[in-house]
Design a protein around this nucleic acid. Structure first.
Lengths: 144, 144
DNA sequence: TTCGTTTCCTAGTATGTCAATATGAAATAT
DNA sequence: ATATTTCATATTGACATACTAGGAAACGAA
């Protein structure tokens, strides 16, 4: 019942790009240094975010990544779901779930549904813009 | 980010014992039949619940298991935590977590803390007694 | 045109967790 | 004594996690 490093890193990666948005796009090398995550691992993670249309890439020297939309348009849940899968607590709640014969009688399902709702309400309440704001309150020491 | 079978089965197991409480204690064999879970797997799961003092065992013929307390005294969260571990969404929130140097600057931690709180509020809101009630509303067809 | 930089793509790998099964011992009611 | 039931430990196969590795493709600058 844990969020994987992939999910957590994806969030830090998106936040890092949002925070370091400038004339030049953000290079993975710099994010890797700031976040203490290997470039190679970040490459894998960001490829999913590129495919999802969350970031765009610019290749070659002075290349890097840029957010496609405003930070306020990305909820934390959107980012996590993109790299972690659907983020539901039990597979019965997945869209592709095969109907379980026990479903009609399953009272634990009520708990899982409410848990899912509670998780969504938090993860979809906050956006990258919130994280950016919080980070800026703390100060620039975050940025190398 | 999924609850394991062990957690889900533990809940169904506790519920099954609560529902089938009678003169004789509940045999794992019967629970296994009703719940379509192997006896061997249930043995492993229940051993953790015995050690935790949640159920008591009676050995030998006419043996089985009984709840130690009233169903209303077991929250869903208690049961899950017993077999799943601490159920926090990121290891930073574990009691035994080594302090992360990034902690002071980590704004994502705020999200994880709020997520954890939201999850707890659901999982500790409901007890076995609620599940028993719901199950009895549905009807006896649950019990073979 | 060449060179270095940066992203892109695929494969591999070590470790661990999950979801059980298997084997047999210990206790105990009849 | 015997059958029943719990108790304890080991083993297994499949899969996921968390990476690393190697090289190709794009592209700006010299």
């Amino acid at each position: 019942m844990k969020i994987s490093t992939k999910g957590r890193y994806a969030l830090r990666l998106m936040l890092d790009i949002a925070l370091n948005d400038a004339a030049d796009p953000v290079r993975l090398k710099d994010t890797a240094d700031r976040q203490s995550i290997s470039v190679k691992y970040l490459e894998q993670i960001i490829s999913q975010l590129v495919r999802a249309g969350y970031v765009k890439s610019i290749r070659g020297p002075q290349g890097g990544y840029r957010l496609m939309k405003q930070p306020s348009e990305y909820t934390v849940g959107m980012i996590l779901r993109q790299v972690e899968g659907n983020m539901v607590p039990v597979s019965c709640l997945e869209d592709e779930a095969i109907d379980c014969e026990r479903q009609g009688q399953c009272v634990t399902l009520r708990i899982w549904k409410e848990l899912d709702t509670a998780m969504r309400s938090v993860l979809d309440k906050y956006t990258l813009a919130d994280l950016v704001e919080w980070q800026q309150e703390i100060g620039d020491n975050y940025i190398i």
